[in-house]
Computed example of a mutant assay.
Amino acid sequence: MLDSVKRISVYQPEQRGLNFPELPEFKTPAEERLHLQKRLVAACRAFAQQGFDYGFAGHLTIRDPEHPHLYWTNPMAVHFDQVRLSNLILVDHEGRVVQGDYAVNRAGFVLHAAVHEAHPDIVAMCHAHTEYGTAFSALGKPLAPISQDAAAFFEDHVVIGDEAGQVAVEVKAGHRVANAFAGVKAAIHQNHGLLTASRHSIESAAFWFIALERCCKQQLLVMATGETPRLVPPEKARYSREHVGSDYIGWLHFQPIYDQLVATQPDMFT
């Protein structure tokens, strides 16, 4: 007989005593901050593994647990593969670096600061100039529920047409993008690329970015066949999104990625 275990997902085991990732608990803000910083570094390294680098473009952020008006982010003009604990920077909503030795990415500040400021519940955000997400964004259309994976984004992402194709370096551009993130975890910014946000963790934001890029690739491949795909019906897409599209599931998906990075890239936390 299985022991009764309080669960927030059907993927959590009902049986006690099995190895399974557990959500962390913290005794102090400093302990939580270090945890978040390590996961931010790992998310950057995961983006490097995925080939999401494009010069200095791309920025990932996590809100500070003690000072919510500040956020940690990767340093400007440092490759995702070279981001480490010691070169993260702490930035305020005005784009001023309050801790760290590197500059902040201007476009990253404009977009992420606006989202963090407009949505206090959003704790993390990711953006990179990826191959398939950028290509798909040129279509100006939402992702179709062509698979179980794509259904995770069903009615949980938006297409943003404002500032389409124009580099977001003006504060007003960030505010227009921020308005679109009410109640969704992802956005396709027309002629620009993908953005994800999480109300849970940097792990969740990072994994759903990886997943959205993958889904864009898959949809482009299906479109290239010239055939009309059979879509997951709305009620089944919603059911799948409920069970495999949550912030918790995004966090859970990232745990083996984190473990693999810790085992193979010991310089991350120097």
Rank of each mutant, 00 (worst) to 15 (best):
A124R: 13
A224P: 00
K217T: 00
E14I: 09
V222D: 02
G193N: 11
Q255M: 01
L212V: 14
I62G: 10
W72Q: 01
L85S: 10
F181A: 08
Q190V: 13
P29Y: 00
L143Y: 10
Q37K: 15
V98N: 04
F254E: 09
A182K: 14
L36N: 04
F207P: 07
E213D: 08
A43E: 14
A168N: 12
C126N: 12
P234V: 05
I188G: 11
V177R: 05
T228H: 02
L70T: 12
N74D: 09
H243L: 13
G95Q: 10
C216K: 03
A178K: 13
V41R: 03
S198F: 04
L221D: 11
G55T: 07
K185I: 11
H157N: 14
A124I: 06
K6G: 04
G183P: 01
I8L: 11
F109R: 02
L60H: 11
K141H: 12
N191V: 05
A124E: 10
L90W: 12
G165V: 03
S4A: 05
L34Y: 00
G193W: 07
A114V: 13
I62V: 15
D81N: 09
E163M: 01
P120A: 10
Q190K: 15
H67R: 14
K38L: 02
P65H: 10
D53R: 04
A152W: 04
R39M: 01
H200W: 10
C44W: 10
E94A: 05
